Simulated assay, not measured.
Amino acid sequence: MFGFFKRNTAEVEVKSLLKGKVVDLKSVPDEVFSSKMVGDGFAIEPYEDAVYSPVDGVVVQVFPTGHAIGIKTNEGLEILIHIGIDTVEMKGRGFTTYVKPGDVVKAGDRLISFDTELIRKEAKSTVIPVIITNMELVKDIKVSLGDAERGDNIAVIRLK
């Protein structure tokens, strides 16, 4: 009647950023991600060599080395996509970026391509953590683990 009991929780659907295997964040071989120090989310073992936007939003950061990107969704979620583990040490070798800060992206837009074989040779892992860095906005996250095609809905994030 007065809206006292009305729930106003928004949901954000997150699509698979590439063809791969969605895994629990705890399995990532880097304590910063696996302990959820920077936020919660999931990771993907890549089966292809390019990352596409998992959400609609605005690119807020592209790391100079091309190994990571930050996107802010229309709902205010901040999502970090980090390609591989210890890939910052590659100093940009093997990464090509297609967007810059301020670009508006739609789910499915190409963001970064990468050389998987070079990452296997020079970095610790090819796994790609996808992290919500402003968890204070999040009520819960439901992730579908296992194989996914690019564009599949793989996570639902309910906002507070």
Rank of each mutant, 00 (worst) to 15 (best):
I119N: 08
Q61K: 11
G102T: 13
L159T: 06
E89G: 11
T133R: 13
F4S: 11
K19P: 01
V28K: 06
T9Q: 15
F2N: 13
M90K: 10
I71G: 01
P129N: 04
K139H: 04
G76E: 14
L17M: 15
F2P: 00
I69E: 07
S35T: 11
K121S: 12
F4T: 05
I83C: 07
S144W: 03
Y52F: 13
S113H: 10
V62I: 09
G3N: 06
E11V: 13
I44L: 12
G94F: 07
N74R: 12
I69P: 03
D49Q: 06
K142I: 05
D140L: 09
T96R: 15
E75N: 10
K72V: 09
G57N: 04
G108P: 05
G84V: 09
T9I: 08
G66D: 14
I69S: 11
V22L: 00
V28R: 04
K36N: 14
K121D: 10
A123M: 15
V104D: 06
I112N: 14
P46K: 06
S144R: 12
E136Y: 10
A107H: 00
T87Y: 14
M37V: 15
V104E: 15
I154Y: 01
Y98R: 02
T96Y: 11
V143H: 10
A123K: 14
R93S: 13
F42H: 05
G146N: 04
V127K: 05
M135Q: 13
V62S: 01
T73N: 02
T116F: 00
D30E: 12
L77G: 04
Y52V: 07
V138E: 03
D30L: 12
F2E: 13
I119D: 07
V23W: 02
T73D: 01
G39P: 10
S113A: 09
S113Y: 07
E89Y: 10
